[in-house]
Structures are given as C-alpha cells and as structure tokens.
C-alpha cells in the first residue's frame, strides 16, 4: 500500500478512536450530572455500543497496513463488536426492569409511564375478581 493511503487510513482511524473516547467522556459526565437511574442508563449506553464500534473500526484501520495481520485479528474485532451489540441491550433491559420493580425510579421525572398503567390494570383485575376463583 502506498504511503499516502496508509496516512489517510491512520487519520481516519485516529478520528474514530477520538470520537469513541469523547463518547466515553460524555457518558461519564452524564453519570455525574443526571438525576436518576434511567437517565444515567441512557447516557451510559453510548460508549458501550457506538463508542466501542468506532474504536474497533479505528483498530481495524490501524492494523490493516501491518504485514502479519491475519484474518483472525479482524475476526476478533468483528466478534467483539457483535458481542457488544447483542449483550448491552440485554443487560440494560434487565437493570432497568430491576430498578423499576424495586422502586429505584424517580416518578416525578418520568413523562409517560405505560408500564405503571399496565400494572395498575392488572392489579385492578386481580382485586375485582369474584372470590372463589383460583389465584393467579
């Protein structure tokens, strides 16, 4: 590969990694400044998915000109990216669910709360059920 092409690749790579580091910093600032668990989760998911993908892209562009870079290195990069995309939403969902169910959500900050309406309807159904029927 020509000298100029490698230089362009390096610049693109370092800009990607810079964006990833910036997202990490933004997430940390959000952790400090945001008032409750849900908004902190909102900001904390940015470096975990987008920032990580940008950094992986940067690593890939940076190690591409090296002679001994094999398919396994790029395979590892793709695997890390796929794994982050699959696992971060699952972990965030479970943390938010547990936070809601154990009452760690500030309800004065929630704009709409559809889950609360559903739970309320379910509670009313349980309460209004005539006695004698089985319990759910």
């Amino acid at each position: 590969m020509s000298e100029q092409f490698v230089s362009v690749l390096d610049w693109v790579a370092i800009l990607c990694i810079l964006a990833g580091a910036l997202l990490s910093f933004v997430a940390a600032v959000g952790l400090i400044r945001f008032p409750d668990l849900l908004s902190r989760m909102h900001t904390a998911a940015k470096p975990q998915v987008l920032g990580m993908l940008l950094v992986l892209l940067g690593i890939g562009l940076r190690i591409m000109p090296v002679e001994e870079t094999g398919v396994f290195d790029f395979g590892t990069l793709v695997l890390v990216g796929l794994f982050q995309i699959v696992t971060v939403p699952v972990a965030g969902h479970i943390a938010a669910r547990v936070g809601y169910r154990t009452g760690r959500i500030r309800h004065d900050l929630v704009v709409t709360d559809e889950l609360e309406e559903r739970l309320e309807a379910k509670r009313r159904a349980v309460r209004d059920r005539p006695p004698g029927e089985g319990t759910s």
Binding site: A13, I14, I17, G20, A21, S24, A27, A28, L31, A44, P47, Q48, G51, M52, V55, L56, G58, I59, R62, I63
Partner: peptide, 15 residues
C-alpha cells in the same frame, strides 16, 4: 461505564 472506558483505552493502545 468504567469498563467501557477500559475497553476504549485498550483499543487505543492496540491502535
């Protein structure tokens, strides 16, 4: 978030 920072740092090192 700390772990994401560590991942980014290791990636920056590798790059």
């Amino acid at each position: 978030v700390l772990l994401a920072s560590a991942l980014t740092g290791l990636g920056a090192y590798a790059a």
